[in-house]
Structure formats: structure tokens, C-alpha cells
Design a protein around this nucleic acid. Structure first.
Lengths: 225, 225
DNA sequence: TTTTTAATTACCTTATTGGATAATTACTGG
DNA sequence: CCAGTAATTATCCAATAAGGTAATTAAAAA
């Protein structure tokens, strides 16, 4: 059921009345923003390019003018979304924290990010349904993950040296464990809730889960007494 | 790109030549089986009912004759898939195992189930993209989960009494933690691999992850020395 | 056998939707 | 201020696909 398709840009905010200033970057970005929402909401085949155009107050032709195909638009949306997350990760500055705090900060950050950005989680989920074929093709993917893995590596090394973290932990494995726990709490809430009566969106459940995951992650890496 | 749509049932296996015996249950089941594969592969909007019909060697009309709408067919597929998993869970017989073995068996079972049934994982993922609206409507969902939660509860109680498991563990929370870890390793492998260079499908990685999860789960519930 | 019921098919209809063609018009550099 | 470039629109199209109508035929009941 497509929503009502408005005519392009009549009274659009800052515009001059009929048609606004031509601005390549702005138009491109508006398409990306709307497409992000639409793809996250409806998936790849579920998304209608007409609707994207309408919501961005432009003609459909423009969408293809800038992105050529629906798939390429999806790829661009995906890349931008990942880039935002990796940027946020980079600002974490785990190196300045003592090991336990660093691990817990990482856990809480990841949990908060996923919970605050369910559209991002949905987008990643959708990309997995498509077997990651867009991300694989794009392949700036690998480079982007290096910083976070490197940060984790350094925390583990410091903690080991300080005698508070056990040895032999694979930073990628750690990251996967953490991602699993955080991602699931957002991605699978809709099937989990009706089955187990556990509403993961409530403030209380969310805080509890956040603590739980932080504890679990620390338990996983810390050196036993 | 729909695959070539064959004409209905000409040389179909056990048939008599032109058209086979009319069998309500068999036809229904064949539709369900094909639909399961198609939905798991292509999602709800990505699936074409023409293709389902062709692969089941029947006319499209029959699909609607038995299931009325595509959505209802999807719901039926989903219900059957869940039922199968819950059945397998029921056969676990955790009550006959000592606490640590029971926890590890549960962990390994869940891991194996998800890894052996990626189509199931995909189907659940797709249902989450649709915000669980089919499962919610069906609502035999809740009843089906009771057995596994009850089993976990009993294991925890026994372990507590025996002094090997700590108190205060919520069985649903435990189940969620385990599901997260296992589900992610299948559901998100396609975005994880190109980003982190970690191939979760290899025999070695799979065995390692399985052990890892079992250890982590036990670490999570066991009573500290 | 005949009648009835229900499984099955052939064919149709209408809405949707990626993407294409071609004209237009707003900026920009000279 | 004018010409060229590039952003933008209006319009079209062919393929797809969910679901419907009505006839047909296999099996069960009588």
C-alpha cells in the first residue's frame, strides 16, 4: 500500500515558491535520507522508488539520475549507515580508560547504538537477507572495521599486562559476542516478545539488559581470581 | 527475475501420466514446503506466488484456494517452522542430565539447530522485519515456548540446590542470551564476514564458536568458587 | 451408475513499478 | 547577457504479480 504520492516540491520549506535552488549535494543527500528510512522500513523489494521520490519532493527520474538503479541506491544507503557507526566507534577513546571501564564502555556503547538506531539494525538485517551482496561489492567495508578491532586489541593487551584480563582472547570473537547480544535485543524483539512475553522496549528491561551484557562481557574477559 | 514457470504437473513422479491423484493434504503440504523455501530465500514481498505454484506443479489458483492470501500462507509457513523447532526442543530431555551437562547440551543444541537450519533463521529474521505481525496474530506462539522455559527453570533450580549454579537467573534472560549468540552466527554472517574476515561457515570456525558459546553460557550461570 | 462435492485448471483483470525518452529550465563561466 | 552544461520535470512503457471468474473433472456418496 504506497502512501499518497505528492506532486514534487511546491511549498518546500526554504524554497522560493515554485522549485527551489538547484543543489546537487543537497538533493543527493535528501534522496539518501529518505531512502534510508524507506529501505529500513520496507526492505529492498518492498521499497518503491516512486515513494522515495515523492517523499524527497522530486521526480522519480532524479533518483535514477543520481543512483542509476535501486540496488545501487541501497548500496549507497548501506555504506553511509555503516560509516556513521564506525565514526561513532572511533570517538570512543577506549585507550584513555582503564581495562574494565573500557570493556564496559564498549559494551554499553554498542548496546546503546543498536537500541537507539533500530533503523540501522533493520538495514543490516535486510542486507543479510540479501546475503551481503551489496556490502561485499562495495568493499570499503573491511577498512572501516580496522579501527574498532585495533582499539579492542589494545585494551586486551593493556588488561593482560595489568593482570586483570586473561590471555588468548580473539578481539574479533569478542566483538562478535558483543554484537550478537546487542543486535539481537533489537533485531529479534518482534518475535521474541510474543513468544516469551518479554518486552525489550521498556525502559526497565532495556536498562537491565544493558547491565547484563556489560557484566557478561566483563565476566568473559576478566582474569579469574 | 522469476525463474521459468513450468506448466503444471505433467511428468510428476508418482502420477498416472496426466494429473495425479487428488489429495488435499498432500497438495497443501507441498505448497507449504515450497513456500517455506521461497519465503526464506526471497522474503515476503520478494516471493512470487506464481513461482510457488510452478515449483509445486500446480496452478496459482490452488495456492489461494488453500491459503487465501500470500500473507496467510506466510503465517502458515512460519507456524510450521516454529512448531518443528519447539518439537526438537522438547526432545532434549534436560531433566535427565546433571546441571552443567544440561546447560552445555542446551547451548550446543541451540547452536546446532540454528546452524543446521539457516532457512529457519532467515524466516524468523524476515518475520522480524515485518515487526512480527504474523506471529502476533497467530498467537499459539506463547504456548509453544512454555516447555523450553520450564525445562530451563528446572535445570536452574536443580543446579542451585546442588550448589553449582548461582541464584537469581531469569530463565527467559538466559534463553535470550543463548539465542542471541547462536542466531547471530547464522543471521549476520553475510555482513560480518566481509567486514571482519571471519568466515563463520568453515568447519573450524563453527566448532570453535560452538565451544565458545557453551563455555560462555556456563560461565554465566555457574556459581563462583 | 448417477449425483454431488470438492480439487483443479484455464484465463482474465487491474494495480504496481523499475527504468527509459525527451523536453525543459536553472545556474555558471565567458 | 548569452551559451553551454547540468539539474529537473513530464510522460511513457513493458513486465510483473496478487487475486478473481468460471468452467472442468476426479473422487466420494447415494
Amino acid at each position: 500500500m504506497p502512501m499518497d504520492v505528492q506532486t514534487p516540491r511546491k511549498a518546500s520549506g526554504s524554497a522560493t515558491g515554485r522549485g527551489r535552488k538547484r543543489d546537487r549535494e543537497r538533493t543527493r543527500q535528501e534522496i539518501l535520507d529518505v531512502a534510508f528510512q524507506e529501505f529500513a522500513e520496507k526492505g529492498l523489494s518492498g521499497t518503491n522508488t516512486d515513494v522515495i521520490a515523492a517523499r524527497a519532493n522530486i521526480t522519480k527520474r532524479l533518483v535514477f539520475y543520481y543512483f542509476n538503479t535501486k540496488e545501487k541506491l541501497f548500496t549507497a544507503v548501506l555504506e553511509e549507515a555503516y560509516a556513521k557507526m564506525r565514526d561513532a566507534e572511533r570517538d570512543l577513546r577506549l585507550d584513555e580508560l582503564e581495562p574494565e571501564t573500557a570493556i564496559r564502555t564498549l559494551a554499553e556503547f554498542t548496546f546503546d547504538f543498536d537500541n537507539d538506531n533500530p533503523e540501522f539494525v533493520r538495514l543490516v538485517t535486510i542486507e543479510n537477507i540479501h546475503r551481503g551482496r551489496h556490502l561485499t561489492k562495495s568493499l570499503k567495508a573491511r577498512a572501516m572495521t580496522r579501527p574498532i578491532i585495533a582499539q579492542i586489541e589494545r585494551v586486551l593487551a593493556r588488561g593482560e599486562k595489568a593482570g586483570v584480563i586473561r590471555s588468548g582472547i580473539d578481539p574479533v570473537e569478542l566483538h562478535m559476542t558483543l554484537s550478537s547480544l546487542c543486535f539481537f535485543s533489537v533485531a529479534n524483539r518482534h518475535t521474541f516478545q510474543p513468544q516469551f512475553g518479554y518486552d525489550m522496549t521498556s525502559k526497565r528491561a532495556r536498562r537491565q539488559r544493558r547491565t547484563q551484557i556489560s557484566d557478561l562481557l566483563w565476566l568473559y574477559v576478566r582474569k579469574d581470581a
